[in-house]
Computed example of a mutant assay.
Amino acid sequence: MDHHEKKDVLLAEAVALRERGRTEEARERLVALAARHPDDAPVAYQTAWAHDVLGREAEAVPYYERALAGTGLGPEDRRGALLGLGSTYRVLGRREEAVALLTGAVEEFPRDGSLRAFLAMALYNTGRHHESVRLLLRLLAATSEDPSVRTYRRAIEHYAEDLDATG
């Protein structure tokens, strides 16, 4: 087994441990793997996630940043890393960074509602309440399966553009 194959096996084993609830063991293995492969974006992403699920957000940040700076993440993992880092910035009080990162993520993945929801939270935290509510109303109008919301979808979309309008 060559160096690359061994890394992939170790990564898969660590992810399997996390998925089975052995999160601290997975985190320790991933930290060691990330130290040996500092430029490997998928390893960095999984290491970030392992810290995040343990509530160790501050420790997750450099791994998320490394994952996003590197190459080799597929679109789904890239989207997950953007959401994870944006959410982590917000939780840590790095709100403007969260808004900037999540704004770019929404542009990159315009169909992803979860990114828009997290951007709305970050906008709220920076005092941009109108933008936050507008984004949430648009998301609600676009994605709700609630029949009453669907009935009023056009009105919701209209008022989302100018919340101060009454007519």
Rank of each mutant, 00 (worst) to 15 (best):
V91Y: 06
E65D: 03
V61D: 05
A67W: 07
L115T: 03
H51L: 11
T126F: 01
L139H: 05
E28L: 12
L54I: 01
V43Y: 09
R78W: 06
L119T: 07
K7R: 15
Y45P: 13
R78G: 08
T71D: 15
L140G: 02
R90P: 03
L30N: 09
L137E: 09
G80T: 08
G113P: 01
W49A: 07
G70K: 08
A122S: 15
Y45C: 13
Y45E: 02
E76G: 15
R18S: 15
L11V: 11
A100C: 11
G70R: 13
P38N: 08
A117R: 00
Q46N: 14
R128V: 01
A44K: 02
R116N: 02
A81E: 12
A34D: 11
L68A: 03
T143N: 15
L33C: 06
V61H: 02
H130M: 12
A12K: 15
E57R: 15
F118N: 05
R138W: 05
R20N: 15
E28D: 14
V31A: 08
G104C: 12
R29D: 11
A141S: 08
D39W: 06
E59H: 00
P110C: 13
G93K: 08
A69Y: 05
P38Q: 07
A32G: 14
L54T: 02
T71Y: 09
A26Q: 09
R66S: 11
L137C: 01
G74W: 06
L135K: 00
L137K: 00
H129K: 00
E76N: 13
V9T: 14
H130R: 14
V43P: 00
A35I: 02
L83V: 11
